[in-house]
Design a protein around this nucleic acid. Structure first.
Length: 83
DNA sequence: GAGCTGACATGTT
DNA sequence: CAACATGCCAGCT
């Protein structure tokens, strides 16, 4: 099980109505400061089980889901996860 | 095996 | 307060 798999597993396990920051995911994966690695991994492992839009930055802003933020981010905003 | 790239974070200017 | 520059870690070529 590599860091990559850990990250993927963690993101996949994000329950509904919950979001994690890149730092949180990286932290759980075993590297608290591997925020960049987390994004890079999600990018290459684009699984439908991986809700990238549920993984946000420390700022509370969603990252770039699929090289361009999806409208789903807008839903997250409505949910109250993003400012 | 080494180097480059990247969907970020934090600090400083 | 906003923008720029540097550093971090892992993956890919």
């Amino acid at each position: 099980m590599t860091f990559k798999d850990q990250v993927l597993a963690i993101v996949k396990k994000i329950p509904k109505g919950k979001v994690l920051t890149y730092q949180e995911v990286a932290k759980r994966a075993g590297s608290p400061n591997a925020s960049r690695a987390v994004g890079s991994i999600l990018k290459k492992n684009f699984d439908p089980k991986i809700p990238c839009h549920r993984v946000i930055r420390s700022d509370g802003i969603a990252g770039e889901y699929n090289r361009g933020r999806s409208n789903k981010i807008k839903l997250l905003k409505k949910e109250g996860y993003i400012k």
